[in-house]
């Protein structure tokens, strides 16, 4: 009973490394091993780490792009509605839909919506704000913002097995291995 309760409360297994190169190599081998739900924690951005982890999807650019398009359509549509449909306004005998006039506001709305998309999208995809995250339960993890590099294979990975994952991480020659409580 007690044992089962402990297993269900495991977030993952974390390995600690002392260099970016070791972490990149570990991430690469973890991916090759077939693990998909794992993450790396480093004190600074590491060139090539996302490639080694096999992170392919770039959701934020597409979010920005689509938000920008929506913003442009909104800005243009708003002006068409207000000055041509709801209250047609004759300005110096020009067309009601004088599109050159509408471009600056269309552009501004596009930029505004795209910026919202970038800001909110980045937060949402990163799961922020996150007041609680299990990785902080590992005492060594404070050094993730100083001089240590961590790799955590999460329990929700279909290949995750407490014994075999631990053995695999051991084969990567980390400084230490810890079980992360959820």
């Amino acid at each position: 009973m007690a044992h089962a309760a402990v297993v269900s409360r495991v977030y993952g297994i974390m390995a600690e490394f002392d260099s970016p190169e070791a972490l990149i190599e570990a991430a690469r081998r973890t991916r090759v091993e077939g693990y998909r739900r794992f993450d790396c924690y480093t004190p600074f951005p590491i060139h090539g780490l996302t490639d080694a982890m096999g992170v392919r999807e770039a959701k934020v650019p597409w979010t920005v792009f689509i938000c920008g398009l929506i913003g442009a359509l909104f800005g243009f549509g708003l002006q068409v509605y207000t000055s041509a449909i709801d209250y047609p306004l004759n300005v110096g005998g020009r067309d009601f839909i004088s599109w050159p006039y509408f471009i600056p506001i269309t552009f501004e709305c596009m930029v505004l919506f795209a910026a919202f998309g970038a800001f909110i999208g980045m937060l949402a995809y990163n799961g922020l704000p996150a007041p609680y995250h299990p990785v902080f339960n590992v005492p060594q993890f404070v050094r993730a913002s100083v001089d240590r590099f961590f790799l955590c294979i999460e329990a929700r990975d279909p290949k995750f097995d407490p014994e075999r994952t631990r053995t695999f991480l051991q084969s990567l020659n980390p400084i230490s291995i810890s079980e992360v409580e959820a």
Binding site: G92, R94, S98, P100, Y101, I103, P104
Partner: peptide, 12 residues
Amino acid sequence: SFSQLLIIYSGN
């Protein structure tokens, strides 16, 4: 280019 168009369009 668009600025030139817009200015001339506005001035008419």
